[in-house]
């Protein structure tokens, strides 16, 4: 710009410098992942604060303020000394653990089959996934009549002479476990399917050319690569099953062996109107879940977790 007068040139240069520093600030923020797109996260952030963080802190604080004058840890002492309350932990485990294990284990062979070319794959997937769209209440209601003493299940078994007396599958933990499998299995299956699909089938072919039979291909190649995914799948289905409520009330025996943590919390809150103790039960539920998840993730951290797509890096 040779023709510009000195003054305006200086002005232009300082404008230029300002523009540069403005740009560079924006660039530096962008480097740290802060640009205008970050505003899109605001609604989600507000929801999390309003619907999760605030209620969670409120509940934790409330759990340390018992209705009586038993002190800071009063509710916790009550929970762990009252056998009827304390047993809920064991009851919940007895229902959630088998349900989550069955969901994960049963999803493996099915996912192995469904990852290949299967006739009517979409139809089968749809049927497998439908139970997600049914509410847990609807499933519990249906099972109550289906599995009941006069239900089809028992009538068929008696009709073919397999049993003489109806099998009791309702109003005990069996009904609850079955309903958790029906509603939890689709989740486990979908997750496992996506993890299995990420494993390059060439690796199983490679194992077979090295002399590995079907079982060894699965046991030595597919399973080790799938295990980290199975750990996550287990955590999610376990947490889903651990917070079981409707089916425990409707299909189980909520005063007896399906007196689970969530049922205890609900009864304490809405029958005894003891909100602080109910909060305590909820906090204990969360802590137990987190302990189980932490244990599983600790085990997972010892596994190979890199790419299982095969090939370079």
């Amino acid at each position: 710009m040779p023709s510009l007068p000195t003054a305006s040139r200086a002005a232009a240069e300082s404008d230029h410098a300002r523009a540069l520093s403005r740009v560079s600030l924006r660039h530096r923020l962008a480097e740290r992942g802060l640009d205008r797109i970050i505003w899109l996260a605001v609604p989600g952030f507000l929801f999390v604060v309003a619907l999760f963080i605030y209620p969670a802190i409120f509940g934790v604080v409330l759990s340390f303020q018992p209705n009586d004058d038993s002190g800071f840890f009063g509710n916790y002492i009550e929970f762990f000394t009252d056998a009827y309350l304390f047993d809920t932990i064991g009851n919940t485990f007895r229902i959630a653990l088998p349900a989550a294990l069955i969901n994960v284990l049963a999803s493996i062979p099915l996912a192995l089959v469904m990852r290949g070319k299967v006739r009517g794959k979409r139809a089968i997937n749809t049927i497998l996934i439908i139970p997600i769209s049914l509410g847990t209440v609807l499933v519990a209601e249906g099972l109550l009549t289906y599995l009941g003493p006069q239900g089809w299940f028992n009538r068929i078994l008696m009709g073919i002479g397999l049993i003489q007396e109806p099998v009791r599958l309702t109003h005990n933990i069996w009904g609850v476990i079955i309903s958790l499998i029906i509603t939890g299995f689709p989740f486990a299956f979908l997750l496992t399917l996506s993890y299995i699909s990420g494993i390059n089938p060439k690796m199983e072919e490679a194992a077979s050319t090295l002399g590995a039979g079907r079982w060894q291909q699965f046991y030595r190649v597919t399973l080790p690569l799938l295990a980290p995914g199975l750990a996550i799948t287990f955590c999610l289905t376990f947490v889903l099953a651990f917070s079981v409520f409707p089916s425990a009330v409707m299909l189980g025996n909520p005063a007896g062996d399906s007196h689970v943590l969530s049922v205890a919390a609900a009864q304490t809150a809405f029958q005894k109107y003891d909100f602080p103790l109910a909060s305590t039960i909820s906090v204990i539920t969360a802590v137990v879940e987190l302990l189980v998840v932490a244990l599983v993730l600790l085990w997972r951290s010892r596994l190979y977790r890199g790419s299982s797509a095969g090939g370079k890096g």
Partner: peptide
Amino acid sequence: LAPEQRGFGMVFQNYALFPHLTVRGNIAFG
């Protein structure tokens, strides 16, 4: 015969190495 009974060695285009095994473990597999 199935591939594991044929026992022909195969080198794949994308190598198909077992990512969870060491180099030694890969070679020892067969």
